[in-house]
């Protein structure tokens, strides 16, 4: 089975130097759980960050050369079309650039393959791929689908293999010219990022420290119901009814 990992021209989030994105390395590790051949694919002007993934278990990296500002999608579709893999994996966002997370979806649409986001575990049985998807609040969802497919990887997936210099030196990079395609879209102005305060439950402006602490720790609604020294059975019934009313506990199954 062949798997292909899409690699972005990522930058380290702190130092800003070229380095493979953490979720893309996790995608390499996840691909190794079921594929014996894991290749990388990058379309862009520079493959230095993608080259770093060679030491984390990538056999071969294909670099489609583009000039800066080109749309990588046609080059990726062409590269996948020449030697179609069974599985394409990607991170949820690129490690640099606009970071919209749209490319895996556009690629799946262009190829006509199904896509599942936020995978944490993969398995294949009889040509059917089983994906465990991570949802918020610790929920998991199981997808079963026919190959080929596009999968994006969640940060909760198994950790990436550590870097090995020998493997990195052995890995080969194939350079091929890509398909130039200009990005057409509405003009977007760019400027240095300015952090904005996140919305919090705040006291009125100019309130003292005690009021701000109270606003941060206490509920905004009216005081709740208080039962003083009830019999334990009545207390248990009240708690269960309250938990069911707020939808935390499933309703009791009757019959």
């Amino acid at each position: 089975m062949k798997a292909l990992v899409l690699l972005s021209d990522a930058r380290h989030p702190v130092s800003g130097r070229p380095a493979p994105a953490a979720t893309e390395l996790q995608a390499v590790a996840l691909a190794h759980t079921l594929a014996d051949e894991v290749n990388g694919l990058h379309a862009g002007p520079d493959a230095e960050a993608a080259r770093g993934a060679l030491g984390h278990g990538l056999t071969r990296l294909e670099h489609r050369q583009l000039t800066a500002g080109d749309d990588p999608l046609p080059s990726l579709v062409a590269a996948i079309g020449t030697a179609p893999p069974d599985l394409v994996l990607a991170g949820p966002r690129a490690g640099a650039g606009a970071q919209t997370g749209l490319l895996p979806y556009c690629l799946a649409e262009a190829l006509g393959w199904p896509i599942v986001a936020d995978a944490v575990s993969l398995a294949v049985a009889d040509g059917v791929l089983e994906v465990i998807q991570a949802l918020p609040k610790g929920a998991r969802r199981r997808w079963r689908m026919r190959l080929p497919a596009v999968i994006t990887v969640h940060p909760a997936a198994p950790a990436a293999a550590s870097f090995a210099l020998g493997v990195a030196r052995k890995g080969q990079v194939v350079e091929t010219p890509g398909l130039p395609a200009r990005i057409e879209g509405p003009p977007v102005a760019e400027r240095p990022y300015r952090p904005r305060p996140r919305l919090i439950a705040s006291a009125a402006a100019g309130a003292g420290a005690a009021e701000r602490l109270k606003a941060a720790t206490q509920a905004t609604g009216p005081g709740g119901q208080v039962m003083v020294a009830p019999p334990p059975e009545a207390a248990a019934r009240a708690i269960l009814d309250h938990l069911r009313a707020i939808g935390v506990l499933k309703p009791a199954e009757r019959g």
Binding site: V188, E190, P192
Partner: peptide, 12 residues
């Protein structure tokens, strides 16, 4: 929106 690891912001 924030882009490039929160180094730049894009506006329109």
């Amino acid at each position: 929106r924030a882009a490039a690891n929160r180094r730049i912001e894009q506006r329109m």
